[in-house]
Each structure stands twice: as C-alpha cells, then as structure tokens.
C-alpha cells in the first residue's frame, strides 16, 4: 500500500515536471528573442566596425601574443583562425575582417530566419572567437550575447517571425521544445539575478547607497550631473535597496502572475535606468529583450493573442493538446 502511494507520488512529480517543461507553447516569444538579440548584435557590430583592428587586430591595443597565452586551447580565436589560414595567404587583418564579415552575414540570416540553425551556429562561433580575441574589452553585454547565441543553436528560434512567415508561411503550432526553451531561458534569468543580487548584498556600498552614488558619479557612466544627490543621501540608499529588492526578489516573484505584473515592469525599469543614467543601452536592451521573451508574452497577450497562452503546471492544457494531437494522428 505504501509502495503504491509512493509510486503515485513519484508519478505526480514526474507529470508536474514534464508539464512544466514540455507543455506545448507558442514559438512566438522565441521569434521575438531571435530578432531582438540579432538586431542588438548587428547594431553593435556596425558601431565596432571602424575600430575592429585597434580592438581585435594582432597589432591592436592588446596584441595576440598577450591574449593567446592566457586562453584555453579549445577556445576559438581570430589568432587561431589566422594560423589555419596563413598558408592560404591570409594576413592577420584579413582574418579579423573575415570573421566579422561572416558574423555580420550570419546575423542577417539569423534575424531574417533564413537557415536559422546554421546561422545561429555561425553566429555563436564567430562571437565566441571575437570574445576570446577581445577578452580584455568585453563586459556584461558580450557575456549575455554569448549565452543567447549558445541557446540559439538548439532552441527553435526559426519557427516564427521569419521572413518566410511574413511572406505568407503560417506560424507553426505550439511545441514542447518551444516551452522547454522558454523554461531554460526563464530559469537562467533567475540564476543571473540571484547571482548578481547575492554578490551585491555582500558589499556595504549597496546597503548604504554609496554604490549608486559612486556609479552615477563616474565619468564613464554618468550621463547627467548627480552631485546634488549628496544632499539627499536617502535617495541613493533607497535606490540601492530597490535594486537589491528587485534583483533578489526576481527568482521568486517573477513566477506568480500577480507579482509578475509588478516584477517584470520593475526589472525593465531597472534596465531602462541603467541605459539612461549609466550610458549602457545595449546591455540594458539585451536584458530587456531576454526578460520580455522569457516572461513578457503572457502579459502582452493582447498583441500576441492569436497564440496559446502559457500557464503554469497547465495539466488541462497539456492533456487537451496531447489528445488533440492523438486525434489528429489517428
């Protein structure tokens, strides 16, 4: 008797896990994710293009001889590509432009949804190589883009909002893989915010408001004058506490719909603030795109209304979909 109850319990847990991860979901948020991330990366590439050689060239500010010594053998880089292509007459400069050209063309294909998987693999490889060859210049934006491109290789990003869909191809049905992809993205975002919140909580500066003060007073980040904040220390303290609350609360309060209505706009506002007041718009846009893709589409079901809404532990939905499928196949 006890074993039967145990088995039932295990079965229930497995069912819950599988419905959480495998309940068919619309691939539309993933289409949005593909276009948003692709456009950000393409914009970044256009901005960096005139400075490719100082940033990534063999005789740029950090020469390859320095960069290559500290890198993993398996990590692709422009320097390693040059070693392969040198016998064919390629110069180091040619290799820099070659890899960024392939990156740009692949990004175009990725955004348009033409051979999405192939383009995603090329984009991932090129971005990884450029990250390695410009390791000293990278920051959060590059880390996030690399995560996105890694996911892009196996997520069904080409199942909606491609150029073919705009030319009349019908969107594909909700799929288990689309839901699994969204779940992984959601869980990864929770990890990101938990990690950054815990790290911030270990510093006194975030509790007493000095972190906000210091960040806004840095010439690198400051877009306006903030010295007036010294007269209002409670403002910086409040802002510091708000950042801690939003980031630490994210992994727990982004899931229930009621709190998500507060937390999603709050996190978007946080990144909007970073873009506006600290001059890091591309990083902020990447984070906003990831958040909207992962958690935003149910909230915006008005304009995404044609697609099935995503529920949590949607047992009725999963079973109705399975029965619909089995009816169709029979």
């Amino acid at each position: 008797m006890c074993n039967v109850v145990k088995e039932k319990r295990i079965q229930q847990v497995v069912e819950q896990i599988s419905s959480f991860f495998l309940c068919p979901a619309s691939p539309l948020p993933l289409g949005f994710f593909r276009i948003a991330i692709g456009l950000i990366a393409l914009f970044l590439l256009v901005q960096l293009w005139p400075y490719l050689l100082p940033l990534y060239g063999n005789y740029g500010f950090i020469q390859w001889a320095i960069l290559e010594t500290g890198t993993n053998t398996w990590f692709p880089s422009i320097g390693k590509l040059y070693l392969l292509l040198e016998p064919l007459g390629f110069s180091p400069e040619n290799c820099v432009f070659l890899i960024f050209s392939v990156y740009g063309v692949s990004l175009l294909g990725f955004i348009l949804g033409i051979k999405t998987r192939v383009c995603a693999i090329l984009v991932w490889f090129c971005h990884l190589s450029t990250v390695n060859s410009g390791f000293t210049s990278i920051y959060g934006l590059d880390t996030m883009l690399q995560i996105c491109f890694f996911y892009a290789m196996w997520m069904p990003l080409g199942k909606s909002l491609t150029v073919f869909h705009f030319l009349g191809k019908r969107s594909t049905e909700p799929s288990a893989m689309a839901n699994l992809s969204l779940r992984v993205l959601q869980l990864h975002l929770c990890l990101i915010y938990l990690n950054t919140a815990v790290a911030k909580m270990q510093g006194l500066q975030w509790w007493n408001g000095e972190a906000i003060w210091r960040a806004l007073m840095q010439p690198q980040f400051s877009t306006f004058t903030y010295d007036w904040l010294a007269s209002w220390p409670l403002i910086t303290k409040g802002m510091g506490w708000s950042v801690l609350l939003i980031e630490f609360g994210y992994p727990f309060l982004i899931w229930p719909l009621k709190t998500r209505r507060i937390w999603l706009p709050a996190i978007i506002a946080l990144h909007g603030g970073i873009a506006l007041f600290m001059g890091l718009p591309l990083f902020s846009m990447t984070m906003i795109a990831m958040n909207i893709s992962a958690f935003g589409w149910l909230r915006n079901s008005g304009f995404l209304g044609r697609y099935l809404p995503l529920h949590y532990f949607p047992r009725s939905l999963i079973f109705s979909n399975f029965s619909r499928r089995s009816n169709a196949s029979s």
Binding site: L128, V131, F150, G203, Q205
Partner: peptide, 25 residues
C-alpha cells in the same frame, strides 16, 4: 571549462558588485 566557455558562462553575473570600482582613463 570548455563547456563553460562555449555556453557563455565564462564570467559570473556580479556586475557592479560587491562594490563599484573606480573609473579609469
């Protein structure tokens, strides 16, 4: 480590943490 680098997890997410560093030029 190879998997970490390939999957983009080569750095943690402790941006501006625990403290905000000095700007440099």
């Amino acid at each position: 480590r190879i998997y970490r680098d390939f999957s983009g997890c080569f750095r943690d997410y402790s941006y501006f943490a625990p403290n905000v560093a000095n700007d440099t030029r």
